[in-house]
Amino acid sequence: MINENLYSLTIGDHIALDMLNTVSYLDGRIVDYWRSSQNVIRWLVNIAGIDIAPTRSFSDQELFNDAIELREVIRTLVEQRKAGCNLDFTKLSLFLSGASSYLAITKSSNNFMLQRRYRSDSTIEVLSPLAEAAADLLINLDVNLLKRCCGLNCILWFYDRSKSHRRRWCSMDVCGNRHKVSRYRGHI
């Protein structure tokens, strides 16, 4: 049984990396926490903060398929960027080109704020904020701070915002502790 709370890991320190981390290595096997459209919708709403209109012109299955495709496009680009390869943004650009957003003025207490809102008439529009986040990660952020966990068999990604930029683990409580225990027992 897969722990439902694990699909919501937010250790990446960037929403595009948190999206990649919906696939992890657990108990000796690769686990995809997006096993259904409902998993994807819960993640989009609760973790990514994307408002999905209850009345929409696409099916949950279409959203599931496109979310999986976008996640794998981002994964490929992140791995290529980290390896110093040339990047082909064609597929990501399809998700970016479908964005339809506008600025809304909202009121919180006595303050007015501008908030970007996205239309959700298509799956591409729903997923476009994630595509924008991925584009920002790939283009604007320091590739040296984009890291994969050093834990044995761990496949999780994070953006190292630590002061010394020496973060090695997705989580000190999990992979970092496993490393300490292995070293103490003389396994490494």
Rank of each mutant, 00 (worst) to 15 (best):
N5Q: 09
S8A: 14
N39I: 02
L92R: 05
N110H: 13
N110F: 06
A83M: 09
L141Y: 07
N46Q: 11
M19G: 06
T90R: 11
I15H: 08
E69L: 06
N86D: 04
S171M: 00
G49N: 13
N21T: 13
Y7W: 04
R35H: 04
S171P: 00
S128Q: 11
R116F: 00
D27M: 05
N110R: 06
I155C: 03
L114R: 12
H14C: 12
K180R: 15
R168A: 13
I105Q: 13
I11A: 05
M1C: 01
L138Y: 10
V143A: 10
T123V: 15
Y7K: 11
I68A: 06
L152K: 12
L94D: 10
F58V: 01
L138H: 05
T22I: 00
V174S: 08
W43Q: 04
L141F: 08
H14F: 10
C154N: 07
T22Q: 01
F158L: 12
E4F: 06
V73L: 02
A67G: 07
I30G: 00
L96K: 07
S162I: 13
S100W: 06
Y159G: 11
L70I: 13
L92S: 01
L114T: 14
W34C: 01
E4W: 03
S120T: 15
Y33V: 01
S171F: 00
T10F: 02
S108K: 15
